[in-house]
């Protein structure tokens, strides 16, 4: 692939957004960046990735942490900034990739080759998916889904001037429950190809 393509995929918990991102990356033969970014950062810092994982894509606790002169002692914020730097560097190096979450549509908004997507889903479908994936009861799955979405929203809205899941800030918002994962991937790939041919 000669022309750089950056695809950011925001997603609701249980919508299959991550799976969609994986399939698109595989079909297009480009790198997928997700939680794996933490491994690269952990290697750089010479720490075990387990040290960083609890702080990934979480909002800052505004009572227990503070920011002074641009220095925050919230590990959540520090890790978020490190990840933003990581994906910016990759974009600046001209690499094509699919990035899941991490406010990428806002962080990389100045890159012309960015295609920003948000995947949502019907509540029932999302709960079913979470139930299956994590072996939970319906109530547990719903609670988990709500908790994660709340945290993702807080995290996103804290670090950007845009709103999580608001269609005005994405090129495309799609409900994965309507077509299922594979057909959604097809629709998205058609859109991506059309954009790339432009």
């Amino acid at each position: 692939m000669e022309k750089q393509t950056i695809i950011s995929i925001g997603r609701e918990f249980g919508s299959g957004g991550h799976e969609i991102a994986e399939k698109i990356a595989k079909d297009m033969g480009i790198q997928l960046y997700d939680r794996g970014i933490l491994d690269a950062i952990a290697t750089d810092l010479n720490v075990h990735v387990n040290v960083l994982e609890p702080f990934d894509e979480k909002p800052r606790n505004f009572i227990l942490t503070r920011r002074v002169n641009g220095y925050s002692n919230s590990m959540e914020e520090i890790l978020a900034d490190m990840q933003f730097e990581f994906i910016k560097r990759k974009a600046e190096e001209g690499e094509s990739f699919v990035i899941v979450g991490r406010c990428a549509e806002a962080v990389l908004k100045d890159f012309d080759n960015l295609i920003s997507i948000f995947v949502n889903g019907d509540r029932k479908c999302k709960v079913e998916r979470v139930k299956e994936k994590y072996h939970l009861s319906e109530a547990e799955a719903f609670t988990k889904m709500t908790r994660h979405d709340k945290k993702r929203k807080q995290y996103h809205n804290r670090h950007t001037d845009t709103k999580w899941g608001d269609s005005r800030y994405y090129d495309l918002c799609i409900n994965s429950s309507s077509l299922g994962i594979d057909k959604t991937v097809k629709v998205l790939e058609n859109y991506i190809n059309a954009r790339m041919d432009k």
Binding site: A42, L45, V47, L64, R66, R67, Y71, S72, N73, I78
Partner: peptide, 23 residues
Amino acid sequence: PIGASANVVGTSVAAKNGHVIGW
């Protein structure tokens, strides 16, 4: 860790280098 500016900056520098200092 949030009581004074030095605490925030010191713990922030540590955290940026992979040394998480929690409460």
